[in-house]
């Protein structure tokens, strides 16, 4: 069994990982857990006169409808923020452990910087390897970069870097991660891509 770089990392509890605070749930009784079983529409609603979004009885409680329409309803714009970037990369699994980069604190919300620009914005993600000589830092950095380049619109430039002073060969790794051509070539290298695919499987 190949010797693991860091056989015994510190593991964060799942409930400690930063999550998006659910929108202030409208405190109407009918929205809350146990009350959800009561249909929100009156038993004598006239199905012939249709209010948008509630044509069908069960439409309102469509189980797959897990998203919350924020204040502006259908047409408000929700900007991409660092929490969204975090949610994209935290579930990536570590190549060595059955744990995610979020749980291992390799990616952390405060180390994600978005510089909005027009037309091009940049996203900088600083990753913290679990130990200073981790040989897999490049693969992890590559995984983060490939995931973001696939998930973000093309107007974002993705920069992934090892945090200052957290890795013995940080600069060399950073240079590799910044080289778009080597990243593209890596994505065509079969063995590397199968490892990356396994790492990205966690992102459902």
């Amino acid at each position: 069994m190949a010797e693991m770089d860091n056989a015994n990392p510190t593991v964060l509890a799942a409930s400690d990982l930063p999550t998006r605070k659910p929108l202030q749930k409208r405190a109407k009784a009918s929205q809350l857990g146990i009350f959800a079983s009561i249909p929100r529409v009156s038993p004598v609603r006239d199905p012939f006169t249709v209010t948008p979004g509630q044509l069908y009885e069960s439409d309102t409680s469509d189980s797959e409808e897990d998203f919350e329409l924020d204040a502006e309803g259908d047409n408000g714009v929700e900007e991409i923020d660092s929490q969204e970037i975090y949610d994209l990369i935290a579930p990536i699994s570590d190549p060595e452990h059955p744990l995610s980069l979020g749980e291992l604190a390799v990616v952390n919300l405060p180390h994600i910087y978005i510089t909005p620009g027009n037309p091009i914005s940049t996203v900088l993600v600083e990753i913290t390897p679990t130990i200073t000589h981790c040989s897999l830092a490049t693969v992890i950095g590559l995984g983060v970069r490939v995931r973001l380049e696939q998930a973000l619109p093309p107007r974002y430039r993705v920069d992934v870097r090892i945090r200052e002073g957290t890795h013995s060969t940080g600069d060399q790794v950073n240079k590799q991660l910044a080289d778009k051509e080597r990243v593209a070539a890596a994505c065509e290298n079969e063995s590397l891509m199968s490892l990356l695919r396994k790492m990205l499987e966690g992102c459902k």
Binding site: P119, I120, P153, P154
Partner: peptide
């Protein structure tokens, strides 16, 4: 600027 839209 933006010769190819947002692309490099």
């Amino acid at each position: 600027e933006g010769a190819h839209g947002v692309h490099e």
